[in-house]
Simulated scan of single mutants.
Amino acid sequence: MPVVFRYKGFSFFFYSNEGNPLEPAHVHVRAGGREAKFWLSPELAVARNDGFDARTIRVLLEVVEVNRAILEDAWHDHFA
Rank of each mutant, 00 (worst) to 15 (best):
L60H: 03
F38I: 11
I57E: 01
A31H: 12
F79D: 06
V63G: 03
A54V: 12
F79G: 04
E18A: 11
R6I: 06
K37Y: 00
R6L: 03
A31I: 03
Y15L: 12
P21E: 08
F38D: 04
D50I: 12
G19R: 13
G19A: 09
M1R: 09
E18S: 07
V66W: 10
G33D: 10
R6G: 05
P42S: 11
R30I: 13
D50C: 11
G9R: 09
M1N: 10
M1L: 09
G19E: 12
H78A: 13
P42T: 10
P21I: 12
W39F: 08
P21A: 10
S41V: 02
R58D: 14
R30V: 11
G33C: 09
R6D: 05
F79W: 12
D77M: 10
R68F: 03
P21S: 14
F38C: 07
A25R: 06
F79Q: 09
A69G: 02
F12Q: 05
L71W: 03
L22Y: 06
R34I: 04
I70C: 02
L44M: 05
W75D: 00
N20A: 11
N67W: 07
L60C: 04
N20G: 00
A69T: 07
V4A: 02
V66C: 03
A25M: 05
P24A: 14
V64C: 05
K8Q: 15
N17H: 15
A54I: 03
H26T: 01
A36E: 08
R55W: 01
H76Q: 08
Y15I: 08
P24W: 10
L44Y: 07
V66G: 00
I70R: 13
